Simulated scan of single mutants.
Amino acid sequence: MEHLNVGRAKLTWLRGGVTFLDGGAMFGVVPKVLWEKKYPVNEKNQIELRTDPILMQLDGKNYLIDSGIGKGKLTQKQLRNFGVLEETQIEESLALLGLSTNDIDIILMTHLHFDHACGLTKQVGNNFEPVFERAIIYTSSIEWYEMRNPNIRSVNTYWHNNWKPIVDRVKTFTDKIEITKGLKMIHTGGHSDGHSLILFEDGDDHFIHMADIMPTHAHQNKLWVLAYDDYPVTSVHQKEKWMQYGFKKQAWYTFYHDAYYRAIKWNRHGEVMNTVKREH
């Protein structure tokens, strides 16, 4: 497992699963001849995408950023269509750190699409129960509403068994919220109407988790957004805003989906200063 210290925070990437999704969908209107130079693609035009939650240990508490793709939640058809080669191994990852699911205090959900939220619940007999027995779950009020009231498009990614078992654990916010000193969730919209990013600032040390408005290092170009985005122009504007902010601060950018980099620090000119690569 890879680690990164940012000020008071220690980040550790857990094994949340791996998918292979269509590269064209992940890069939207960008021609393949351009994006394939920056991110490997297989013969089926699929790219490898992790679904790895980040454990953040901060001031004596254990936070989780998103929850992985889950275990035993997908049908055989879904496993095939999403190219799932590995399901969540969160319990095993936590055990290697001397922790369990009961040790997670707070979960920060950037959004609630199935590949981020399936790890929140598990099937026990004929019912679904929370995976993290005592964790409080934060997400934006817009995202929480849409999760429970999906439209004709989003019904395919907002699933009942991912929210009904945790309904009494969820706390929402509107524009932004400071979870603890220096740690904020900020609503962005774009990828989904309720999508949020995570910002941590501790003196001169910063990290920004852009989630799915910049899912991989290859999406650094502010115009390269997903065909999956509900509001792509919003994604472009939010990416531009937060990349300008982060470049100026020389912040770390962390990734949930990137199969090659866990985090990258760019300078104010957009040039790579430092990286944390995923161990293969």
Rank of each mutant, 00 (worst) to 15 (best):
R15L: 10
R134Y: 08
W159A: 05
Y245F: 08
K222Q: 06
G190H: 08
I198D: 10
I198T: 15
C118E: 01
L226P: 08
G23W: 12
L11W: 05
D115W: 13
S100N: 01
N45I: 02
V6D: 15
K171Q: 14
I69T: 08
E86A: 06
E133C: 01
G23K: 14
L74D: 12
V18Y: 15
D175Y: 12
G182Q: 12
Q238V: 04
L74I: 07
E129F: 00
Q46G: 08
T275V: 15
W13C: 03
W163Y: 08
C118Q: 01
L21I: 06
A117K: 09
R15P: 05
F82M: 07
M243R: 10
E178G: 08
D115M: 12
I198V: 09
A135H: 14
Y256G: 06
G23F: 13
M185K: 10
T75H: 03
I152K: 10
D258A: 06
T172E: 03
E271V: 06
I186T: 01
I107W: 01
D202T: 03
H160L: 07
H209G: 04
R50P: 03
F173T: 08
I208F: 07
G72A: 00
H116R: 12
L99V: 07
T110M: 11
H219R: 02
Y63R: 12
V170S: 00
H219C: 02
I106F: 11
F27G: 03
M210A: 03
M109H: 13
K71I: 03
E129D: 00
Q46C: 09
L223W: 14
G72T: 00
K73F: 01
T254V: 10
I106C: 13
G189F: 02
Y228L: 09
Y145T: 11
Y253W: 10
K171A: 04
I106V: 15
T234L: 06
H113A: 07
V225W: 06
L58N: 13
T75V: 02
P31H: 03
I264S: 03
T157M: 10
Y158G: 04
R278W: 11
N274H: 15
R262Y: 14
A218W: 02
G60R: 11
S141Y: 09
A25K: 12
Y261H: 13
I198N: 05
D175P: 06
D230C: 02
G16S: 11
F132S: 00
G119C: 14
T12M: 15
R80I: 07
